[in-house]
Nucleic acid binder design. Structure first.
Lengths: 147, 147
DNA sequence: GCTGAAACTAACCCGTA
DNA sequence: TACGGGTTAGTTTCAGC
């Protein structure tokens, strides 16, 4: 993890589909060296993957919300179970497991208010859920400085 | 936006660096058709970009937090100013502009408790900020079903 | 570990249906 | 709008430094 690796990461966060040749030129190393370094970053787990960023609204999911979930106090030994549940819900995009008054923050994208109501009902219907608070998201910006 | 497009998106969300030939084969269309469709999705803004997912801990940012920010009630006409500020902070990874008791949720990654304290102090020092609440994030899962 | 060239592979553009 | 071939460009390997 030297300065060259950081430069590679910065460019790959901004554009994961940059060609190896272009990336090598931008950071000032040979193409073959660049390939080996990028592969190493991937294998070491520094880069966890490459993903397309899809606009939720463009695929029929214009409504986003953050749902904070408080679990029952006796559910501490079943955290994995609830985590597995929310991971399977198609609406859930991010699961933040937090310390504090709440236990989870769920970033969700749904088709409309009906789908949101159903989702919240599903969550509240789980035996380990003590309560939820839903906040609508007007806008979401993912910054490019992921390094 | 037919079923073929949805299939393309699903695969591109899972792996943005899949080759065009492999992607074409997976969804059962010719490579040239696949290329044209993917390009169209990009140009129509359905795909907003392709990004590497970097492990924050692997680049020296092992501490993550969600900071909820409440603005002064008279700051409503300066929302853009505060948004621009937080976008420039290197620690900030996601900015959620929400409805409810709070105005912003900031997902941040920092080097340690000192950096987090400094960040919160910076936010609280802004004239438009009425208060902040910081929750540590134990774990963050980004689900792959972005379509 | 970095480099540069050579062999291989994929991307891309165009004519056709 | 989808397909298939031919050209261009990029990836990948390898031996030398």
């Amino acid at each position: 993890m030297d300065e060259t690796d950081r430069a590679l990461l910065t460019h790959l966060v901004a554009d994961a589909r940059i060609t190896n040749a272009a990336l090598a030129e931008k950071v000032g190393i040979a193409a073959s060296t660049c390939l080996a370094r990028v592969r190493s970053l991937r294998e070491r787990g520094v880069v966890r993957g490459y993903h397309a960023d899809v606009d939720p609204a463009a695929v029929g999911l214009p409504l986003q919300a953050m749902i904070s979930v408080r679990l029952q106090s006796d559910a501490r030994d079943r955290l994995g179970e609830f985590t597995a549940l929310v991971r399977r819900l198609p609406a859930v995009r991010d699961v933040y497991f937090v310390a504090g008054a709440d236990d989870y923050l769920l970033h969700v994208a749904v088709a409309g208010t009906g789908a949101l109501r159903d989702l919240v009902a599903t969550l509240n219907g789980h035996r380990d859920v003590a309560g939820t608070v839903t906040s609508l998201i007007f806008d979401h910006i993912r910054t490019a400085h992921g390094v």
